[in-house]
């Protein structure tokens, strides 16, 4: 039975405090999407198998389908909606768009957040480090390659602080 009693939960999401009453058995995924209207976080499997629902908690990717909101009080939660700042897309978002790393786009929010966490630890990750960091996110469309290339392009742009154009080799394949 779903509970009739609710818990008062204070969550900090994308820099803003939210206070709400939610049944304790609702996952963070359900609360983000249904109670807060943040539908950028995607529902894939509800079982921790696909990474589509990944959000950042204190900068680290976690699966919102396997997290109770009440457990995350006092932590900083970031969803894909929090990535763009001051009306500008995050370099990762720009690179994903430029390179076609988002095909159907359904897995994209989870990948973007996992990649953001990686780039915060390592500004110039190797291909293997990128694969490792993204190994918990399933994608059924891209074959992952464009996603790696986009993370590399974003890292390059972030390091140089400029709009590096995609390399021809990246755009055209070899």
């Amino acid at each position: 039975m779903s509970s009739l009693s609710k818990l008062r939960v204070r969550l900090r999401v994308n820099g803003e405090e939210h206070e709400m009453l939610v049944p304790v058995e609702k996952t963070l995924l359900e609360v983000l999407r249904e109670d807060m209207g943040l539908t950028g976080t995607k529902h894939g499997c509800e079982l921790g198998e696909c990474g589509a629902c990944a959000v950042l908690v204190d900068g680290k990717p976690v699966l919102s389908c396997l997290a109770l909101p009440v457990e995350l009080e006092g932590h900083e939660i970031m969803t894909v909606e929090g990535l763009a700042a001051a009306g500008r897309m995050h370099p990762l978002q720009e690179a994903f768009a430029d390179l076609g790393a988002a095909q159907c786009g359904y897995c994209t929010p989870g990948f973007l957040l996992a990649a953001k966490s990686l780039l915060e630890q390592s500004s110039d990750p190797t291909r293997d480090e990128i694969k490792d960091a993204l190994a918990g996110n399933l994608c059924r469309c891209t074959g992952y390659i464009k996603i790696y290339e986009a993370v590399e392009l974003a890292a390059r742009r972030m390091r140089s602080g400029s709009e590096t154009a995609p390399e021809q080799a990246v755009l055209y394949g070899r």
Partner: peptide, 23 residues
């Protein structure tokens, strides 16, 4: 030409509305 998608912004920003996102 190798052009990015016309709806790439929606797909990377979380603003693309899929049917499951309709309330």
């Amino acid at each position: 030409k190798p052009l990015p998608r016309v709806d790439a912004y929606e797909r990377v920003s979380g603003s693309a509305v899929y049917a499951l996102d309709l309330f």
